[in-house]
Amino acid sequence: MHYAVELRAPGLAARVDEVVAWIWDRDLTTFLDALAADYRGWDGERGWQTNDRDLTVSAVFRSGGHVGPTWTLRPWPRAAGGWTASVTTWLEAGEQMASLAAHVRHFLTGEQQ
């Protein structure tokens, strides 16, 4: 599957037009669904990445019931002069995280929310 990923934050705009995700045993929707299901929290950091590592998502759980997924773009990770950009989005561990997971699933698979 090929798709574009864009990160935006104050003072930052980064885009990779050709992210490739091979759907093997664990795709992004499975990862986000697992984060949403663990709304009571977990210790440490959880992570997911595309096979080429041009898109990675890591997530931590913080007190107050918030999940912080950090979205990192790193196109051409082995190329000299490559770049990296990251944005963290803080979401409520329950409904907001479940909503994000549903929206990403709909985008990637066409399944209804």
Rank of each mutant, 00 (worst) to 15 (best):
S58V: 15
R74K: 04
Q96C: 15
D25N: 02
G81P: 13
D33W: 08
S99Q: 10
R15G: 00
T109Q: 12
L32K: 10
L55N: 04
A80L: 12
M97I: 03
W24N: 04
H66D: 13
A101Y: 14
D25M: 02
F61K: 02
T109E: 13
A4W: 04
A59K: 10
L12S: 01
G110T: 04
W48L: 01
A14G: 00
V104A: 03
D43F: 10
T88F: 14
G41F: 09
V5Y: 07
T84R: 14
D54N: 05
D17P: 03
Y3K: 03
W42D: 00
F107C: 07
L91Q: 10
V60Y: 15
L32S: 07
G81E: 14
A85P: 09
D17I: 03
L32P: 09
I23D: 09
T84V: 10
E18Q: 13
R8G: 03
A36L: 06
G110H: 15
D38N: 08
T72D: 02
G68L: 09
S58M: 14
T84Y: 00
V19I: 12
D43I: 03
L73Q: 08
D52I: 02
A37L: 01
A4R: 08
R46L: 05
S58E: 15
G47E: 14
H103C: 09
P75K: 01
D27E: 01
G82H: 15
V67K: 05
V67A: 06
D17Q: 06
A9F: 08
H103K: 12
P77Y: 05
E111K: 13
D33M: 01
R8E: 10
V16I: 04
A36S: 10
Q112H: 15
D43Y: 07
A93T: 05
H103M: 11
W22Y: 13
W24D: 02
T30E: 00
L55C: 02
L73P: 06
V16H: 09
R62V: 10
V87F: 08
Y3V: 01
R40C: 09
T88M: 10
S58L: 14
P75Q: 01
V60D: 11
E6H: 02
W48V: 00
T84E: 15
P75V: 00
S86E: 15
A59E: 11
W76T: 08
E92K: 01
V20C: 11
V104Q: 10
W71M: 02
A102T: 05
W48C: 03
A4V: 11
L91I: 08
R78S: 11
G68R: 09
H2G: 09
E18A: 11
H2C: 07
V19D: 09
E92P: 02
L35Q: 14
D17T: 06
W76F: 10
G64Y: 14
L28M: 08
L108W: 08
W24C: 00
A98D: 07
A80C: 06
L73D: 07
A101N: 12
Q49E: 12
R62C: 11
